[in-house]
């Protein structure tokens, strides 16, 4: 079964995620309206500017559709996408708000502090090349949330049921392992729903 994976295409590193999805053998679908959501098995929230994305979500009146989609289907948030998914954000009201984590925006400082580092991601890869750009961090998680990676003691990648989020940008490298992990989550969920 070929999966249809949506990429929220309002702003940010959209084409990079599209390329990664296609390299994994899945179909990539640009999501700009609630109609686009109907045909996808999983959704990618790309990196970009979370504040701008939230405005564009509001302008397109897309928030209720994204929240409804998140009840059933897998969602992968990278960087700004992590912020959109988080159930709590320090000093800010949540957006989609379905993944049980607390996020802190720009947690590593301004752009001159942005960095790349090899990272061990549990169940995915030992030395994943992680690119952090004005990145957020996860300051705390619900007890049932699985922490997949930490950097200097801070949580930078986690999974909560059918949600996964990371502080860094897998789309900026050629490493597809995290995308493949997400596609496996989507496939599992789709098969589960077929079985029901």
């Amino acid at each position: 079964m070929v999966m249809n994976i949506g990429v929220l295409a309002l702003q940010g590193a959209v084409t990079e995620h599209v390329r990664a999805i296609q390299s994994c053998g899945a179909n990539a679908i640009l999501v700009k309206s609630s109609n686009d959501l109907a045909q996808v098995d999983g959704l990618l929230l790309p990196g970009g500017e979370s504040t701008a994305m939230r405005r564009l979500i509001d302008y397109a009146q897309l928030l209720p559709a994204l929240q409804e989609f998140s009840m059933e289907k897998p969602v992968f948030g990278t960087c700004a996408g992590l912020i959109l998914l988080a159930s709590e954000i320090e000093n800010e009201t949540p957006h989609i708000g379905k993944m049980r984590i607390t996020a802190r925006r720009n947690a590593f400082g301004r752009q001159v502090e942005s960095f790349e580092v090899p990272l061990s991601i549990r169940g995915v890869k030992e030395d994943f090349s992680a690119v952090f750009i004005r990145a957020p961090k996860i300051v705390s998680v619900h007890e049932d949330v699985e922490v997949l990676a930490t950097f200097e003691g801070d949580i930078v990648c986690a999974r909560d049921r059918h949600f996964i989020a990371c502080s860094f940008h897998p789309e900026l490298t050629n490493d597809l392992s995290l995308m493949q992990y997400f596609l496996a989550m989507c496939r599992e969920k789709a098969e589960e729903q077929v079985a029901q």
Binding site: A9, G12, A13, G47, G48, E49, L172, T173
Partner: peptide
């Protein structure tokens, strides 16, 4: 280079 060009990529569509 990845970090600097990557920052610009995050501005796309904006």
């Amino acid at each position: 280079e990845v970090v600097k060009r990557g920052m610009a990529l995050m501005q796309k569509g904006g």
